[in-house]
Amino acid sequence: MSDISEFITNLPKAELHLHIEGSLEPEMMFRLAHRNKINIPFRSVDEVRSAYNFTNLQDFLNIYYAGANVLIEEEDFRDLAVAYFDRAAQDGVTHAEIFFDPQTHTDRGIPFNVVINGLLAGMKEAEEKHSISSKLILCFLRHLDEEEAFKTFRTAEPWFDRIVGVGLDSSEVGHPPSKFARVFAAAGDAGLKRVAHAGEEGPPEYVQQALDILHIDRLDHGNRALENSELTTRLAREAMALTVCPLSNHKLRVVNDLCDHPVDRMLAHGLRATINSDDPAYFGGYIGDNYRAVAKGRNLSREACMTLARNSFLGSFLNDYETMAHLQKLDAFFHKHHEVDL
Rank of each mutant, 00 (worst) to 15 (best):
Glu201Ala: 14
Leu226Ile: 03
Ala241Glu: 04
Leu214Asp: 13
Leu242Asn: 03
Asn223Ala: 12
Arg218Cys: 06
Leu214Arg: 14
Thr243Pro: 01
Arg237Ser: 11
Ala236Val: 03
Arg224Lys: 15
Leu211Cys: 08
Ala198Arg: 09
Arg218Gly: 10
Ala198His: 08
Leu242Gln: 04
Leu226Met: 14
Gln209Ser: 09
Val244Trp: 15
Asp220Arg: 12
Leu219Cys: 08
Pro204Leu: 09
Gln208Thr: 13
Ile213Thr: 11
Met240Lys: 03
Gln208Gly: 02
Leu211Gln: 07
Ala210Thr: 03
Leu214Val: 05
Ala210Gln: 03
Gln209Cys: 04
Gly199Ala: 05
Ser229Gly: 03
His215Ser: 13
Ala241Thr: 01
Thr243Trp: 08
Arg218Gln: 11
Arg224Met: 08
Asn223Gly: 04
Leu214His: 13
Leu231Asp: 09
Asp220Pro: 04
Cys245Thr: 11
His221Phe: 12
Asn223Tyr: 14
Arg237Thr: 13
Leu231Ile: 03
Pro203Gly: 07
Arg224Gly: 12
Pro203Asn: 07
Glu201Ser: 15
Arg237Trp: 05
Thr233Gly: 11
Thr233Phe: 03
His197Met: 00
Ile213Glu: 13
Ala236Leu: 14
Asp220Val: 09
Ala210His: 08
Arg234Ser: 04
His221Val: 01
Glu230Leu: 13
Glu201Cys: 10
Glu205Pro: 02
Pro204Phe: 01
Leu219Trp: 08
Asn223Phe: 12
Ala198Val: 02
Asn223Met: 15
Arg234Lys: 15
Cys245Pro: 00
Asp220Tyr: 07
Arg234Ala: 07
Asp220Cys: 10
Gly199His: 02
Gln209Asp: 05
Glu230Met: 10
Glu227Met: 15
Leu235Lys: 12
Ala239Phe: 10
Leu211Arg: 02
Ala210Tyr: 09
Thr243Lys: 07
His215Ile: 05
Val207Glu: 03
Val244Arg: 15
Thr232Ile: 03
Gln208Met: 13
Tyr206Glu: 06
Gln208Phe: 06
Glu227Thr: 01
Glu238Met: 15
Leu226Phe: 02
Val244His: 15
Met240Leu: 14
Cys245Lys: 00
Gly202Val: 00
Arg234Asp: 05
Ala241Met: 12
Ala236Gly: 09
Ala225Ser: 15
Leu231Ser: 13
Ser229His: 06
Thr243Ser: 14
Glu238Thr: 10
Leu219Lys: 13
Thr243Glu: 05
Gly222Ser: 08
Thr243Leu: 02
Ile213Pro: 01
Tyr206Pro: 01
Gly199Ser: 04
Thr243Gln: 07
Tyr206Asp: 15
